[in-house]
Design a protein around this nucleic acid. Structure first.
Length: 394
DNA sequence: AATCCGGGGCC
DNA sequence: GGCCCAGGATT
């Protein structure tokens, strides 16, 4: 029974994939390096988003060796806007592993591939199967959705135990010698037909024996506990315009080695309030600029506030930033006064956001051309582009 | 097992 | 403008 169902599923799916598969850049070659890069980019990210990044990345780093030898800044810049930046750093670290341990070629070996930085159970399976046609399951969110529905599995896909049992099932489904096409077919079905909200059952190649559809439960599967909402944070950022030798430039800083947006560049900012709008959204401009001025001075940046420039928001998986950006003018005079002790030392009650753990951050005065060399999270990139385009924020 | 890591698309 | 989607590392 179940055996027949599995046989049907695998055969029909493979047949469907033969004519329905999309023409994707990384499917045009058999180069394991291309497969690997695409699979890392595709983690938590849609195909349409990845395609332009993939082209740029391969053009800039055509081989594993080129990637291994590149300056990390350039790798990060190439990843700018794609998110989850540890993927980029791990990818380059793994390229060095491959260069040093495997002579520059991705090994056709499950354990060796597993040992690469940034490669977990899913990516290990996708590389082994797609690049080397080895019968290793590659279970991602798409695959869990498809299997949940077809086999009417009501286990919570958020649980690790569920993913593991899905891997056992997915491995059993791989037809002899067809691991590469079959695993891709499974994911392709999830992406094109067995979609999250309104699956296209009428055009599905396996709908006749889909247990979820037969039970009328296709839209209730997979069972998945909801993620928590991101916690709000209210932040005050400084857009400091240089004067004198720094005229035409603005001050940016580089974030610490680890943690949120590691080693990305940003405008200096402070946490005004977590969770509490009274200290954030409800804070008037004057006290906000005051706090910011003091926090900047504590880091040796002397500037005078000019007023509110714009507001911005940025959502991470677990934090929602409400950002108010104030315009400042660099003031060497204030710095000179501070050196004479004429300006009170800041109590440093409000530290610059990213300097909470590490040594003083690297800072730079940049113009528009510099901006295009450094990697910024989208929210700061938008603010800077707006500024350098000379635009008045909306 | 729970938390930390971005960003974009859909309604 | 809220809601949904989707792997690996770390602890």
């Amino acid at each position: 029974m179940q055996q027949d169902n599995q046989q049907f599923f695998s055969t029909e799916l493979l047949d469907w994939y033969g004519h329905a598969k999309r023409d994707l850049p990384w499917r045009r070659h058999r180069d394991p390096y291309f497969i690997w890069v695409s699979e890392i980019m595709l983690q938590q990210t849609r195909v349409d988003t990845v395609i332009p990044y993939f082209h740029r990345f391969i053009e800039k780093f055509p081989t594993i060796e080129a990637l291994a030898q590149a300056p990390e800044d350039e790798v990060l810049k190439c990843w700018e806007g794609l998110g989850y930046y540890s993927r980029a750093r791990n990818l380059q670290a793994a390229a060095k592993q491959v260069t040093e341990l495997h002579g520059g070629a991705i090994p056709d070996d499950l354990n060796a591939v597993s040992a690469l930085k940034g490669v977990g159970p899913y990516t290990r399976g996708s590389i082994m199967s797609i690049a080397f046609n080895r019968p290793v399951p590659a279970v991602d969110g798409n695959v869990m959705r498809v299997l949940s529905r077809f086999f009417l599995i009501e286990e919570d896909i958020v649980k690790v135990s569920t993913r593991k049992s899905m891997e056992v099932l997915a491995e059993a489904l791989i037809p002899e010698g067809r691991a590469s096409d079959f695993n891709q077919a499974l994911m392709e079905l999830g992406a094109l037909v067995c979609t999250p909200k309104s699956p296209h059952c009428l055009t599905c190649p396996v709908m006749q024996h889909c247990q979820g559809r037969i039970a009328g439960m296709e839209t209730q599967l997979p069972v998945k506990t909801k993620a928590k909402k991101p916690r709000p944070e209210y932040r005050l950022a400084a857009l400091i315009e240089g004067s004198g030798a720094e005229a035409g430039r603005v001050l940016v800083q580089q974030r610490p080695q680890a943690g949120l947006l590691a080693r990305m560049w940003e405008l200096p900012h402070i946490l005004a309030a977590a969770e509490n709008p009274a200290g954030g959204a409800g804070l008037a401009d004057e006290p906000a600029m005051d706090r910011l001025t003091q926090a900047l001075a504590a880091e040796g940046h002397y500037a005078q506030p000019q007023g509110l420039y714009m507001e911005a928001e940025h959502t991470f998986s677990h934090i929602h930033w409400n950002l108010r950006v104030y315009r400042f003018r660099q003031s060497p005079e204030l710095g000179a006064l501070a050196a004479l002790g004429a300006v009170a030392e800041s109590s440093a009650e409000y530290e610059l956001a990213a300097s909470e753990k590490d040594a003083p951050l690297k800072t730079r005065w940049i113009n528009q051309a510099d901006m295009e060399q450094l990697a910024f999270p989208n929210v700061f990139l938008k603010i800077l582009k707006q500024y350098f385009d000379g635009g008045i924020p909306q």
